[in-house]
Write a protein that binds this DNA or RNA. Sequence first.
DNA 1: CACTTGTTTCACAAACTTGTGAAGTTAAGA
DNA 2: TCTTAACTTCACAAGTTTGTGAAACAAGTG
Lengths: 170, 170
Amino acid sequence: MSSRPQSQRDPDARDDEAARRFVEKFALVLTQAGMARMPARVFSAILADDDGEMTAGEIAEALQISPAAVSGATRYLMQIGMAHRERKPGERRDHYLIGDDFWYEIIGKRDPVYSGLADALESGIDAVGKDTRAGARIEQTRDFFMYLAKEIPALIERWRDERIRDLGHP
Amino acid sequence: MSSRPQSQRDPDARDDEAARRFVEKFALVLTQAGMARMPARVFSAILADDDGEMTAGEIAEALQISPAAVSGATRYLMQIGMAHRERKPGERRDHYLIGDDFWYEIIGKRDPVYSGLADALESGIDAVGKDTRAGARIEQTRDFFMYLAKEIPALIERWRDERIRDLGHP
DNA sequence: CACTTGTTTCACAAACTTGTGAAGTTAAGA
DNA sequence: TCTTAACTTCACAAGTTTGTGAAACAAGTG
């Protein structure tokens, strides 16, 4: 979990200082995409960890945050399915991990967002009147989100398939 | 812009009270999807307006908010391309409008988000080492976002084409 | 050119969010 | 059963964000 001084580094090995910078950089992008700060940092830290698995203590240490902050962030990450927790029998510590294919899950879960928009729009069509200009506009918008709700999961499925095929022919 | 009392309503005509509820409901969904409250409300109001076009005064009146709030919200909406402003010659008022096909634009603009994630991840691969487990995981994640950055615009393009074809054969 | 209507800017108060220390809870190990 | 390490919950202080009133600014109109 540590690397040599810069002057004699193997360019293919881990550079802790650079890894730390990456964690903050990636967390920042996630934050800009709407994720809260601590969950973003915690997630990035686990992502950059070689095992993809850290204890709460390791997280607190790595990010210099309180156990309370770790607890809050991990609870959130687990809730939205971006991390999960494991504890081996006869272990006191929880290990937080991110799967190797969690991204499909997360993006796939945008589905409810689009469906939610489509549902809200559905009720709007009646409110403004089916045959009004607003009605037509809202209906078209609804159709678009229904399309996304259907096609995006299919897109991700396609990626999954391609990946599996690539692993078969490396 | 107004409708009869409930008791004698035409079910295909506009129901102002229901429309108002829709505006708040849809704004709430947008808010949950990460949009700020006022821009979400203003956008929803214009979406539900029959002309798809409102003056700042109409917006303030409809949503019971100050001119300052309208100004801030419209500035934001225009900046991200969800609304634009028009003023006819010899008019004192600005009219804010949303196009009939703005959604493609907006979702299409997620592209930079995915590209941004892919970029940040790219730098992470070197930081943790190309041939480490973390390196492989980050690389795979980057590939996934590059895939999305490429495929989602294509998806939207496809919708556009289908729409145009539908309009040709109604 | 002054008046009037409409929009933007700005400073601020209120409301909300965030991360912390400290106390409380849980469960492994002796 | 008691001890202790690990995690969670809670109240709060600090920091942000949000929407407002008031004042400044722009642009038609008489």
